[in-house]
Design a protein around this nucleic acid. Structure first.
Length: 412
RNA sequence: CCAGGGGUGCCGGAGCGGUCAAUCGGGCUUGGCUGUAAACCAAGUGGCCCUGUGCCUACGUGGGUUCAAAUCCUACCCCCUGGA
């Protein structure tokens, strides 16, 4: 029931097109997977996103775990039935929250942090040198057994282990699930990243073991099941750790791979990491780049062999007034748009752009009308999905490089 | 008419002799958001310049006290609440 088939390879790069078959339908790659953390995309329905070409969506384990909502979802028979989603789904394992609720929130950094190296000028709250030991903070504690989260709502402590993560993901019933990992920070030292990486590898094995249960331990069996699991490569920005991780993860019988964790200090670091990691992974298997989704990054990553992206950017940007256009992003709250009769993007074919002016949406956003967010979310999601469609078309036509150049030229 | 309370920057609203060009909200302007603690966060928001423990103009209006007033006194104007 699960299959990933490469349908076309680019002659000049690692870019390729493919089809992922799942029990809930096919996904044409390279694909963008909109993120609906709590089983909602925030601002747009799954159906609507599907109409714009969204073929798969992502939901988060942690956010359905800390409130025990997964138990109720289980009674409905899983996410598809519960949230009425007629499309393939992925669930993230909760590993990212080890970072985003811990390190990330503590030091105000994301997966890519350009604030290093730090010296006397380190911003308040940021360490003056890389972190070599990290056990957690008030929200999350981490050790070799897993992560302990403090529920921000009621203060209750919750222990999330690789075993637990997989069991929850099985209950949630997404088509593609992820192994439980520890996402490190750009501020993590080599030593710490290595330690976390060992942990992630152990957890990967536990994840697989839990996933197979008493069923056939062969990868082939998994592919015919209702779910397939991706293993996550870690290693931060460190070359040998990335290699070590790629080898360790690819030695296990995952359906495919995801590249996660810190992607360095800059986009160039990230591209470098992809350059050295992807060739070490089985070419035939599907590859997901966790959490990345800015337009230039999509092109650079597709070129390096990435098939799947998930990213909160288009939906979050929309809530913050930031709109994707063929000339780069604009912020609708800017004064100039209040009298702008043009659509959000003159080249966009989405319903929002066919109907409304920037002036009207700018007005709604300033007045805090939720409809503004709905409109911008619809547009941004549609825009991203259309970009992916056109990337696939360009690959099919053997004109990926041309399309990349043309798109990025207009951008920014 | 009598008795109280009040008039502060675009708005609301602190301050009640010096550390006040004035706390804090909101608004406005501009940045930032990459496996969602994010419909959020940050910075700026009287004018001028040689950008400084700098100079002007500002706390209803006019006068005054004081080395020094948004802060005290006084007259006037306006607003609110009770009472005739």
């Amino acid at each position: 029931m699960f299959q990933f088939r490469i349908t076309k390879k680019d002659k000049k790069s690692r870019a390729r097109m493919g089809v992922l078959r799942t029990p809930h339908g096919a996904v044409h790659t390279p694909a963008f997977v909109p993120v609906g953390t709590k089983a909602a995309l925030r601002g747009i329905s799954f159906d609507r996103a599907k109409q714009y070409g969204g073929e798969m969506f992502m939901v988060n384990t942690y956010h359905l775990f800390h409130n025990e909502r997964y138990k109720i979802i289980g009674k409905f028979g899983g996410l598809h039935a519960y949230a009425k989603i007629d499309a393939p789904l992925m669930t993230d394992s909760g590993g990212f929250q080890v970072f985003s609720l811990g390190f990330g929130s503590e030091h105000g950094v994301g997966k890519i942090a350009d604030i290093f190296p730090v010296s006397a000028k380190a911003p308040a709250g940021r360490p003056s040198e890389k972190i070599t030991e990290y056990r957690g903070n008030n929200f999350v504690k981490i050790d070799d057994t897993g992560a302990t989260f403090k529920n921000p709502v009621n203060g209750q402590m919750l222990w999330l282990t690789p075993k637990k993560s997989i069991e929850i993901q099985q209950i949630l019933g997404a088509d593609i699930i992820f192994s439980f990992d520890e996402c490190t920070s750009p501020l993590s030292s080599y030593e710490y990243t290595k330690k976390a990486l060992k942990r992630t590898h152990t957890w990967a094995e536990v994840s697989l073991k839990t996933f197979y249960g008493n069923k056939h331990p062969a990868a082939a069996a998994l592919w015919r099941g209702k779910q397939a699991m991706l293993g996550i490569v870690q290693g931060g920005e460190y070359e040998d750790l990335r290699k070590e991780s790629a080898q360790a993860i690819s030695s296990l019988s995952f359906f495919g791979y995801a590249i996660g964790g810190s992607l360095g200090k800059s986009k160039n670091d990230m591209y470098r990491i992809l350059d050295l990691t992807i060739p070490l992974l089985d070419e035939k298997k599907i590859k997901h780049l966790l959490g990345i989704g800015e337009v230039d990054d999509i092109f650079e990553s597709v070129e390096r062999g990435i098939d799947l992206f998930d990213c909160v950017a288009p939906t979050r940007w929309a809530r913050h007034g930031s709109v994707l256009t063929s000339k780069g992003r604009i912020n609708i709250r800017n004064k100039q748009f209040l009298i702008d009769k043009k659509p959000l993007d003159i080249h966009c074919a989405c319903t929002v752009c066919k109907t409304y002016s920037r002036a009207y949406i700018s007005h709604l956003y300033r007045e805090k009308e939720v409809y503004a967010i709905m409109l911008m979310t619809e547009h941004n999601v549609a825009w991203m999905l259309d970009l992916m469609r056109r990337i696939r078309l360009s690959l099919k036509a053997g004109e990926f490089q041309k399309f990349k150049k043309q798109t990025l030229q207009g951008f920014q």
